[in-house]
Amino acid sequence: MAKVIAGVGTSHIPAIGAAVDHNKTQEAYWKPVFEGMEPAKKWIEETKPDVCIVVFNDHASAFSLEATSTFAIGVAPEFQPADEGYGPRKVPVVKGSPELAWHITESLIMDEFDMTIVNEMPVDHGLTVPLSIMYGQPEEWPCEVIPLCVNVIQYPQPTGNRCFNLGKAIRKAVESYPKDTKVAIFGTGGLSHQLQGERAGLINAEYDEQWLDDLVAAPEKIKHTSHTEYLRETGSEGIEAIMWLIMRGALDEDVKQVYRFTHCPVSNTHYGLLVLENQDE
């Protein structure tokens, strides 16, 4: 039987990908960031999930204003790194997990989540940066990946409650899959940041730390946080953090916090990294 064994939360800032790709990780600006990631890297090297479900968002790479899906799940055998305007990142092709992805898709739709089923999707920094953070620069990514793309850039985003419940439904779907498979789920994006407007550069570290406390220990407290509160308190792009709620929903009510790290700034963002395990692992 398949199992969701753990959850990872991480910002997916493009500059992190650039720092990895251009060997800047030992520069003064970056050193503390990459050192802070080390324990999570070690953890995943030991834990070796077979499949990572990566909850991320597309940033005008695969999708455009022509069609914006609230939730899209990738069922393809592979996903190519996208050209975001600099040429595609030189990272390995992302291998999918079509059979499990279809199993999850069917289960989610039967559980009344209105998924978009996607077979053609170049993946941008939203998905590849978290892989770089956790796995560094391997020849091949050491796991299969199921991309789960969430609309966070078009208002209205899905509610936090919907995201949390999607996580629960994903867990149920995984646990009804007959093959022995260790699954980790990544929530990506956030924490506080605002890229646009006169308020660009906004950071609210205090709010983020409280939010992380609650995410770990009392997610029910934050799942009804309104869109406007996220926009106001964490910046217009901080609302990405709802994707961490999907990850959290897929885990036990009580989880073990394996690791947590925050750092400000990374580019224009309050960077956050979190590793959670289900208690019975």
């Binding site: 069922v75 079509p98 279809w102």
Partner: peptide
């Protein structure tokens, strides 16, 4: 029935 297995 055009399910995931037929799709693939």
């Amino acid at each position: 029935v055009f399910d995931g297995s037929h799709f693939r």
